[in-house]
Amino acid sequence: MDHVQIAEKVDEAAVFAWLKTYISNVLGMDQASIKGSDGLDSLGLDSALTTALAMDLETWLGVEIPLAILFEAETLDNIAAGVAREAERQHVTAG
């Protein structure tokens, strides 16, 4: 997978924006209606969809995201924070 574009500096806000776009595209929802306090479950993402989201998130970030971050977080804000931290950690280790 040498032509994956690894997202440059990813912070929490960037991950949250990605989550919002992704979820609204997949479920055909209005982006503006998705809040940071929403949980994946309340938005309508079950384990199948959450797993798909994880795969596409990994492709976008170019790093592996442990599924537990997504399955155990309560809100999108928690997920964005956890994912940004994980991406930062792996970039530091790699660089």
């Binding site: 997978m1 574009q5 797993t51 795969m55 596409d56 492709t59 976008w60 537990a68 399955f71």
Partner: peptide
């Protein structure tokens, strides 16, 4: 399809294998 990136089409994960 996502533009410009090969998409991950399957995943193996201990979490999923447990389920």
């Amino acid at each position: 399809q996502l533009p410009g990136q090969p998409r991950q089409k399957v995943i193996d994960s201990p979490h999923l294998h447990k389920m």
